[in-house]
Design a protein around this nucleic acid. Structure first.
Length: 528
RNA sequence: CGCGGCGUGGAGCAGUCCGGUCAGCUCGCCAGGCUCAUAACCUGGAGGUCAUAGGUUCAAAUCCUAUCGCCGCAACCA
């Protein structure tokens, strides 16, 4: 019995005070490609997602709507998962931080950190707004002439007892960790950012308690306080794999292989989180990946921008569910993965969306499938005679399946999804379209059916390779392409190794796709 | 001097880490070919001082310095 290597990955947990938007979807998409790729490569994958509910904003939002906070959270969690499922995000577990399972985990963890002597009681002094009932930073105080920007009332100096996590103690250990594990923070620009932040500003101890709040997790050693959101939010990464209730599962999957996060929360994941884990006697995660953001036409999507888009009828582009309904989940996935370089920022643009879809998916990939199938289905009884046992030929002299598979593989592992897709297009699918045009099988078939069959065989092989390489990106379409022919290897068992060489098949190839009038239904109907 | 990113033919980008094989890709435009295919496909063409100015080098989009312009984060928006 061989044991599969494990792969544990997470995405950032989201605040459910509004519906999932385009940016959160972007994060899940990249993570999903990684998870699907790892599964294909034989990893035992655990893909964790969830919602971060123990924040006052959530409680406030529920109150606004006249709902019980828990009911509100559960409903939002349902809505989030609805979107993720529609997008084919293949998560294994969805955590809600307001659920008891998570709270048990937090208490156990926080108690451990406390017992290990990394939490101490002190005082917090700062500028407090009675209207907001919260402390404001010195910067807010300075920039607003001592007034609360929301309430336009003077901020008052206030001191209250609190608990601190001794983050500063871990500063040197963190810097040493980054040094020893150069891949811990990806991409590299994020790492430079965090290192210089720590070196110039230093790490201060963090106030991890909030007083007098009902919504949240009580500190196990002092129920008068609830936990600061970050101190509980990060713990979802271990809750989901059984930190408090399934030791074996936890030991199997921890440490995480990769945490996908937005670049804005890098410091929490790269500094606070490893320190917390060490404080509780656990290992730090192996890697934190800070992806870029999605902008609309080069700008951030602000409230005012949203109003403007609504007037133009383009606001649907910000609502994942509406894009999926208007186009398809595959179109959605492809656009973002192709157009937005995951490590850096990307753009959503309605015209570009249609261009990318039509060019890559409709004209190149979908059309290639159509033109490959029509000749055998109309002239050769759906067969490709003479192909049994024959090793297909490359569609271009410079095409090298092994090289392409290796490139796509390394791009995917580095989360450079747009480059992976570009490589598939440039090295495989564009040449395949050119090949079929140059060889003119529609003419050849009139004189020599077998010769035409062999030409098309080479194109079918390109489609087979493309479908496998594209499987993590557009799983449904890739499957449809693969299953358009009688390849003996089951779809669920293909891996990138199967795409790394031109393969002979035992039997003559045959069209197995559903046909109407001798033609396949367009896989990606052009958007006009 | 808070931190980070970007500036490449009309548009959007890749290439920059590890200088030469680089000026590449998609769209758009012009001309032609083809007709198997989703009015799809293929070929050719026009169009670029690789932001600017210096420097290093036999050689710079690529390395160094400075300048200009745009953007993001910095404040619980991923």
């Amino acid at each position: 019995m061989t044991t599969k290597p494990k792969w544990f990955q997470t995405t950032a947990i989201d605040y459910p005070n509004s519906r999932p938007h385009i940016g959160t979807a972007f994060e899940k998409l990249g993570a999903d490609v990684q998870a699907r790729y790892r599964r294909m490569e034989g990893y035992d994958v655990f893909f964790l997602m969830g919602n971060d509910e123990n924040t006052l904003k959530v409680a406030d939002r529920a109150k606004e709507l006249g709902q019980d906070p828990q009911a509100y959270c559960d409903d939002m969690a349902r809505q989030f998962q609805e979107v993720w499922k529609a997008l084919d995000i293949s998560y294994d577990c969805f955590i809600q931080t307001s659920h008891e399972r998570h709270k048990t985990c937090c208490r156990k963890f926080i108690q451990k950190v406390y017992d290990n002597g990394h939490i101490y009681k002190g005082d917090f002094e700062g500028w407090f707004c009675p209207g907001c009932e919260e402390f404001k930073s010195d910067k807010v105080h300075a920039e607003n002439a001592g007034q609360c920007p929301n309430h336009k009332r003077p901020l008052i100096r206030r001191v209250e007892p609190c608990y601190y996590f001794a983050l500063s103690k871990f500063q040197e250990q963190l810097l040493a960790h980054y040094e020893r594990n150069p891949d811990f923070i990806q991409p590299e620009s994020r790492k430079n950012e965090i290192v210089s932040l720590i070196k110039t500003e230093g790490l201060r101890d963090v106030n991890i308690s909030r007083a007098g709040e009902e919504w949240g997790i009580q500190l196990p050693f002092d129920p008068a306080f609830t936990s600061y959101v970050w101190f509980d939010a990060l713990l979802t990464y271990i809750t989901g794999i059984g930190y408090a209730d399934d030791e074996a599962l936890f030991r199997k999957y921890w440490p995480a292989d990769i945490h996908f996060i937005g670049k804005d929360i890098t410091r929490f994941h790269c500094a606070l989180w490893p320190a917390m884990l060490w404080a509780a006697g656990e290992e730090a995660p192996k890697q934190v990946f800070g992806h870029g953001f999605v902008y609309f036409d080069g700008d951030k999507v602000s409230k005012s921008r949203l109003e403007e888009l609504k007037k133009k009828g383009l606001d649907y582009l910000l609502e994942p569910m509406q894009i999926i309904q208007k186009f398809s989940s595959e179109a959605f996935r492809y656009y973002f993965l192709r157009e937005c370089p995951y490590p850096s920022d990307g753009n959503i643009d309605p015209d570009q969306f249609i261009k990318v879809f039509n060019n890559d998916l409709a004209n190149t990939l979908g059309n290639l499938l159509s033109r490959t199938i029509t000749i055998p289905s109309k002239s050769l009884q759906g067969q490709f005679p003479g192909t049994a046992g024959r090793k297909p030929e490359a569609v271009a002299p410079e095409f090298d399946a092994g090289k392409l598979a290796a490139e796509v593989r390394s791009r995917v592992e580095a989360c450079e999804f747009s480059q992976a897709l570009q490589a598939i297009m440039t090295h495989l699918l564009y040449p395949a379209n050119k090949y079929i045009g140059d060889q003119e099988p529609w003419k050849v078939v009139k004189a020599d059916a077998n010769a035409a069959s062999l030409i098309l065989h080479n194109v079918v092989e390109s489609l087979r390779i493309a479908s496998i390489l594209l499987k993590p990106f557009i799983p449904r379409s890739a499957e449809a392409i693969y299953k358009s022919f009688n390849f003996p290897k089951p779809w669920d068992e293909v891996s990138y190794a199967d795409a790394a060489e031109l393969q002979a098949q035992p039997d003559d190839l045959r069209v197995t796709a559903e046909l109407v009038d001798g033609k396949v239904k367009p896989l990606f109907p052009r958007i006009v």
